[in-house]
């Protein structure tokens, strides 16, 4: 009996956390998204107070509606933000993959005594605050910044390039910030690959290059998928990078959300945007989970 209770508690703890830190806040946001804007504190109506009890709760439910969601479909700002977020996240993921793969590959092929150091270098940027690192990019990318100075010094360009406050800067920021999330899963899938497989491929008539395409690449697909999701999912909702590096016409849903909350103080619409964003993210997250399960099965 006691043992059962202990087991129940043990399994219960993570669920309790999930409930407290995810479901409860989510419920609150969901409720706000069904409310109406009001000039009050908090800036929406109706609000719930415990004294009114069950009857009060029922009255509150009756006042909730889908008005905000309907609004999201009426103004194209929202869906263009969603689409633009998806596009930026997708392109950044591809760029991160293109840069991360050779990086992870060369790490996995490096002499084994070097690998811990190389891994360390990949993780090193995490020791500085994310915000500060993104700020640093402003100094690099701005018109009189380091990059432009270098380009002009080398005579590649005559006039400084406008990189800051464009989508390019956003791509640079996202690729830079999320590169470790791509490299680490790629590295781990490449590193555990059995070298004799490549030898077998060569033995059967492959050059080193075709052995890469036929053996190494297919075997690193789980790493590619994992890394891509780890970049794609947070990139969709990214706010700091487009806000600091992007221009006024860089649309991302994180920025729209922020503007809705803090500039417009329209919490109900902002909540509706957030709920939709969550629903949008659930698809890739579920796909990711599925893929991880399959990868684990294949390993056994």
């Amino acid at each position: 009996m006691d043992k059962k209770l202990g087991r129940f508690l043990l399994i219960g703890i993570p669920y309790f956390w999930l409930f407290l830190l995810f479901l409860v806040p989510f419920g609150i946001v969901l409720k706000i998204s069904f409310s109406d804007i009001a000039v009050a504190i908090p800036p929406y109506t109706p609000t719930f107070d415990f004294e009114s009890g069950w009857e009060g709760f029922k009255a509150l439910l009756a006042e909730l509606d889908f008005e905000n969601y309907i609004w999201l479909t009426e103004d194209d700002l929202y869906w263009t933000s969603y689409l633009s977020s998806l596009r930026i996240a997708f392109i950044s993921t591809v760029l991160t993959l293109l840069i991360g793969y050779p990086l992870a590959y060369s790490m996995a092929k490096a002499p084994s005594e070097w690998r811990p150091t190389l891994l360390m270098l990949i993780i090193l940027p995490f020791w500085t605050s994310f915000l500060i690192r993104v700020y640093a990019w402003i100094g690099i990318l701005k018109t009189e910044g380091l990059l432009n100075q270098l380009l002009m010094f080398l005579g590649i360009v005559d006039d400084p390039l406008q990189i800051l406050n464009t989508d390019t800067a956003v791509y640079i920021g996202i690729v830079y910030s999320y590169l470790p999330f791509m490299v680490l899963p790629l590295y781990s899938s490449l590193e555990k690959m059995d070298g004799s497989l490549l030898e077998a491929a060569q033995d059967l008539g492959c050059t080193a290059i075709s052995a890469f395409w036929k053996v190494t690449l297919p075997l690193s697909i789980p790493g590619i998928i994992a890394g891509s999701f780890l970049v794609f999912i947070p990139a969709i909702g990214e706010f700091v990078i487009p806000d600091l590096l992007g221009g006024s016409n860089t649309k991302m849903i994180g920025k729209t959300l922020w503007a809705e909350f803090f500039s417009n103080r329209d919490w109900p619409v902002a909540s509706a945007v957030a709920v939709l964003l969550l629903l949008l993210l659930i698809v890739p997250i579920v796909l990711f989970q599925k893929q991880q399960e399959r990868a684990q099965e294949a390993e056994q």
């Binding site: 004799s196 497989l197 077998a200 060569q202 033995d203 297919p218």
Partner: peptide, 29 residues
Amino acid sequence: PPYKRPVNMMFQSYALFPHMTVEANIAFG
């Protein structure tokens, strides 16, 4: 280089391609 030799080897560790079926493994060469 190995891929130019009329020699094939059966590896001590088998070195079968894990992402391919038995058939595809045999057909590889």
